[in-house]
Nucleic acid binder design. Sequence first.
RNA 1: GGGCCGCUAGCUCAAUUGGCAGAGCAGCUGACUCUUAAUCAGCUGGUUGAAGGUUCGAGUCCUUCGCGGCUCACCA
Length: 522
Amino acid sequence: MPLPELQAIRQAKADQLRAMGIDPYPSRARRSHTSDEALKRYAALEPTLGQAGEDPEAITVVGRIVGFRDQGKTVFAHLRDGHGQLQLFVRREALGEDAHAAFRKLYDLGDFAQATGHLFRTRAGEVTLRVVEVRMLAKALNAPPEKWHGLTDVETRYRRRYADLLASADVRRVFEIRARTVSALRRFLDGRGYLEVETPVLQPLYGGAAARPFTTHHNALDQTFYLRIADELYLKRLVAGGYERVYEISKDFRNEGIDRNHSPEFTMLEFYEAYADYTTMMESVETMVAQVATEVLGAPRIPFRGEGVDVSPPWPRRTLRDAIREASGVDYVEHPDQAGLLAAARAAGADVPADTVWARIVDELLKQFVRPNLIAPTFLTDYPVALSPLAKRKADDPTHVERFQPFLGGGEIGNAFTELNDPLDQLARFRDQQRDREAGDEDAMPIDADFVNALMYGMPPTGGVGLGIDRLVMLFTDQDSIRDVVLFPALRNLPPEADPVVALVSGIDLPDDPAPPGGDGA
RNA sequence: GGGCCGCUAGCUCAAUUGGCAGAGCAGCUGACUCUUAAUCAGCUGGUUGAAGGUUCGAGUCCUUCGCGGCUCACCA
């Protein structure tokens, strides 16, 4: 048998259609109404219709067959399109005996079909199409997942997202919200005069974040390239070049662990504004998130764990130092050396390895004591300079930089600062990074001489923000895992011999000399 | 990478202390003129993730491997 049983049965039905002169994969479809347009049409028409309650005019709809209830002379089916679904009422006397028999025997759940007929309301009250003509648009060989439970195995859902999507309206909704969120962010920035730009994904030198890159190779140039870990340094070059407001929505890549909050490729929004500083950018962020939430979700409120969290501006602002001090009792400013801070952190109950560097201990205090409680939107501001090699120092406190991170739902959704535009300070910070790098810190940034050169031409005072789009979408859709807001999350390859899809497809025997499309078997 | 848990029919799930691998959905055959998780009768469908081992006998116990989830470490 060329196909497993279930697929072979459907393939045989396709062949029967061909034998009847019907192409099971026609090139064109016709539709006069989407499902929601049909429902609206009937709602508007119903009061004017007589006793019969039937639309005298025929309409044509298309979609996938998602329900099929055969009662002999009558078949009820549901056709789902991108806008909803519509019930079909398929009667023998309306369709003719042969067409009716063909519909009953040769159409299956999952097939795409086109139906023409008249709208009416059934006794059970559902607006339904009384079908006078039906046509196959695409025969499905695989049966759809179980109609009530859908796909529950998360691995299968991620590997075969198409099956997940066709089985689950909830999953489809998540990615619709994602798309609308990205488009609302664009609208917000476009409306404020930002220019959307595209900077290199393949970079000869990576930078702009503390992370390990993916490395690749260009054959013709015989040169190593890195997949970008951030857009920051390129976008600031553009500000130095004279654009006052730029943004990019980019896939960034970090060669690090994968977990609920981390994907090796993820989507980041970065935007930079000349003559702004980090306080301006805080206003932009809180306004943007609230406005986008209103546009996408209907209110400035995210559905956090079923509870909901208000994201209306203004968001409270607290310095990192105060937040840590209040939550843990540790004032890191009083412990400028590693040993002292380590002892204080441990005394406060933090779990910190003995060899943790000073800046990382501060980060641990933030993570362990502060972050989990930041459910309502909050800006933490003013970070120690050691944590932020691209941010500008505070004028009144050179040990801290003008940086903030927006927190929401117990996690950070971004990172922002008044950008460092002093070329020599930037060079010094790069050199510090270089020293960390030589000391074995693989995440430390390499020196980007060309970026320093750009700053030497002069970059205006600038505020910049990076926002994690995946995390924002997780909050907007109340999903706990980044994999549930990424359509095709990165997964380890199955060995071919263990992959059921490879087994299915490699087991298919095709005719030696396949007939031209639509011609075989006819 | 470490620890814990999981993998049974196309899909969703069962299977007592180790004792004949089952059900629902889907599918096939048939019945049925307003159903909507339609219903009714009958039927098909399995290398229990893979390979070894223990045993009279393994879905179940042991070992190794594969993939996934959670978690810790690293990070946004």
